[in-house]
Write a protein that binds this DNA or RNA. Structure first.
Length: 427
DNA sequence: TCTGGGGTCCTAGGACCC
DNA sequence: TCTGGGGTCCTAGGACCC
């Protein structure tokens, strides 16, 4: 059996850990740049605040109901996420925990065959809550897709389920499938849901589970569709991931605080993003063969609906894979020159590193000069300092110091757990 | 007039996830 | 005025090779 643990309204819960007076109070957390709403407490959901909706639209209602509002504070969330995952690893053993995202983890419960899975799951739930202050929901089932489905049911009905749902018999599974709309299945997004409803009269997970593999192959994206179908039929096809596999692509992208038309501002931003991406690269001991940059133009006004601005991208394949920041910044800035159009206003830029290989391959390369190793040493020192300070105290000159383009973060809470001078004070 | 067949690698783009 | 920021996997089709 497999389980998925999912933190309830994770970012909101993180804020509440340090502000217990907000426990019954509606809370929302905003995306970078205070653009959209990316986490809502149950109370905020009840008020009708929409997920991923633009903040400025929800603002009147938020103010009217005195909803506590926070800019995202990733230092805090990252740290609390680590505590939750560490708790799971202690309870179940490292090898049985697959961290799936900042607020979710799959658990392998094969070692508990014969036990009462409800009891096991409840114990996990209560321990995480007691040790970290974060409330979680647990779904248990024979496959990952079904455990996600169980988790959904747990969250939809917190009172009755106590945030734990176990699907361990055919009857329970069948009933769960019948009560789940097809768009709530993990792996069915907007496009497929629309198609299933309109063209195939498939309304529930149950309807879908009755289809054939040939049908799934034809209508649900080939092998992906077959896997999904099997998982719904309680046949495991998506296994637990081996631990700690390295990323195959690394990206750093941001909106600007306001629209920018000066190429130097854009270059400053792109240089900063490149340093960040290179840090991530070195943290997993990889080097990149390909760097790409994209910039997004400001959308045209006087359009009725919201339209994303045009995005232009270009990439350069490097002569040798590298993880050295300034060797990445140089081509990145060349790409900006290539993409930038004079007079155009831009609102966003990003850097992506791909073609990732282990760092050793470079060191083994005979054509790399000796001094490359010195650079590598310097890089790791830079990383250590940045990691300790948890931010970019050491910067490259190209990244600039004025940061005219930087994000808005009006409502960020203190970084309680990662900055000494922002520690919570207790009387 | 008539223009192989098959394999591999790479890239762009589409779908999904949180 | 104001709409995150990351990731994954898969497929189709072109380039290239023999």
């Amino acid at each position: 059996m497999k389980a998925i643990i999912d933190c309830n309204s994770f970012y909101c819960s993180c804020e509440r850990v340090f502000k217990p007076h907000l426990d019954q109070h509606p809370v929302v957390v905003l995306s970078n740049n205070d653009g959209c709403i990316i986490s809502r407490s149950d109370e905020a959901k009840k008020l009708g605040v929409e997920m991923a909706g633009p903040y400025f639209k929800a603002k009147p209602m938020i103010e009217k109901h005195n909803v506590a509002t926070f800019s995202s504070n990733y230092n805090l969330y990252g740290d609390l996420s680590w505590r939750v995952m560490e708790t799971l690893r202690m309870l179940l053993g490292e090898e049985n925990v697959e961290v799936y995202s900042v607020d979710e983890a799959f658990l392998d419960l094969d070692g508990y065959e014969g036990s009462d899975f409800y009891e096991v799951a409840m114990n996990i739930r209560l321990t995480v809550e007691q040790w970290t202050g974060i409330k979680v929901s647990v779904g248990v089932a024979p496959t990952k897709v079904l455990s996600k489905l169980a988790n959904n049911l747990a969250k939809k009905n917190k009172q009755a389920t106590q945030c734990v749902v176990v699907l361990d018999t055919e009857e329970k599974i069948s009933k769960a499938l019948q009560t789940t709309p097809v768009n709530d299945i993990w792996g069915i997004g907007g496009q497929y849901a629309e198609k299933l409803l309109q063209l195939h009269a498939v309304f529930t997970a149950y309807d879908l589970s009755k289809k054939s593999e040939e049908w799934a192959h034809k209508n649900l994206g080939g092998v992906t569709g077959i896997r999904l179908l099997k998982e719904l039929k309680a046949e495991p096809t998506i296994e637990m991931k081996e631990k700690l596999d390295k990323k195959k692509m690394i990206a750093t992208t941001r909106m600007f605080g306001h629209n920018v038309n000066n190429i130097n501002d854009i270059k400053e931003a792109v240089a900063t993003y490149t340093s960040k991406a290179a840090e991530k690269l070195r943290r997993q001991q990889s080097a990149a063969n390909v760097i790409s940059v994209f910039i997004v133009a400001k959308e045209q006004s006087h359009q009725a609906a919201f339209h994303r601005g045009e995005s232009k991208s270009a990439s350069i394949t490097l002569p040798l894979a590298t993880s050295v920041t300034n060797e990445l910044i140089k081509p990145a800035l060349q790409l900006v020159d290539r993409l930038y159009q004079h007079g155009q206003f831009y609102k966003k830029a990003g850097v992506m590193l791909s073609g990732l290989v282990p760092d050793e391959t470079i060191q083994a390369n005979l054509f790399v000069e000796e001094k490359q190793n010195n650079k590598r040493l310097l890089m790791s020192m830079v990383d250590n300092i940045n990691f300790a300070m948890r931010n970019d105290i050491i910067k490259y000159a190209a990244a600039g110091t004025t940061r005219d383009w930087k994000m808005r973060m009006e409502f960020r809470s203190p970084r309680y757990t990662t900055r000494w001078n922002e520690l919570r004070e207790v009387q």
